[in-house]
């Protein structure tokens, strides 16, 4: 995965576009254009998810963020006075820029200093094959053969990174059952709450 040239090129181009788009979102004077730039950033992040073998998350990102959230924001922008140059800076602009760049360097420092676990440190071959979906074997001529894994019988035999949708589903209803219920509760209370807030009193 790490050695794939096309994936690397796509990653660098897309992440450059993400950072450029995010800067445009926070600096644009025209809020509507900012909202469209935001949806562009969302699509690029979905591409990053596709590169990371998270197809389900990428599709959900497009469905919820681009299809619903950014359309809602663009919808709300039409109600604002002075759309064309309505997004003004507060007086703390320079201070916040300094603070955010400081935080950025701190985050980079921490991520570089910490020793993260790496996939190479897994020594159990079955576990690795269950994740990636195949075994590596060296043939006689020295090249590497890839063998399809049949690790477990209950649906995970393709490897959880290759077939992530199935594994996300099964962990949502086993490990994360209570969080899932809480999310449902939050969603319905947000729905009812926003309807209550926005409802206009009927004139008698």
């Amino acid at each position: 995965m790490s050695g794939n040239f096309f994936i690397d090129i796509t990653f660098w181009v897309v992440s450059f576009l993400i950072i450029l788009g995010s800067f445009y979102v926070v600096t644009a004077r025209n809020i509507f254009r900012g909202a469209i730039g935001l949806s562009f950033v969302f699509i690029c992040v979905a591409i990053i998810f596709f590169l990371l073998n998270a197809e389900f998350l990428g599709v959900v990102q497009i469905l919820v963020y681009v299809g619903a959230v950014s359309v809602l924001i663009a919808f709300a922008v039409m109600f604002i006075k002075d759309v064309v140059d309505g997004s003004k800076y507060s007086k703390y602009r320079l201070l916040s820029a300094f603070l955010c760049s400081f935080l950025f360097f701190v985050l980079i420092f921490i991520s570089q200093v910490t020793e993260w676990n790496s996939m190479d440190s897994i020594e159990n071959e079955d576990a690795l094959a269950g994740l990636e979906g195949f075994y590596f074997e060296e043939s006689e001529s020295g090249s590497i053969l890839i063998k399809k894994a049949e690790v477990l019988s209950d649906g995970v035999n393709k490897g959880v990174f290759i077939n992530s949708t199935l594994s996300i589903g099964s962990s949502l209803i086993s490990n994360f059952l209570i969080p899932l219920q809480v999310i449902g509760f939050i969603l319905i209370s947000a729905l009812i709450g926003s309807l209550t807030i926005i409802r206009q009193r009927r004139k008698q």
């Binding site: 599709v59 469905l63 681009v66 359309v71 919808f75 949708t165």
Partner: peptide
């Protein structure tokens, strides 16, 4: 392997196009 969700996601993009066109 997420084909059906992909169709739903992609068709929801047309809402964005409508907002842009109208504004």
């Amino acid at each position: 392997n997420v084909g059906l969700l992909f169709i739903l996601a992609v068709t929801s993009l047309s809402g964005l196009a409508v907002v842009i066109a109208s504004w």
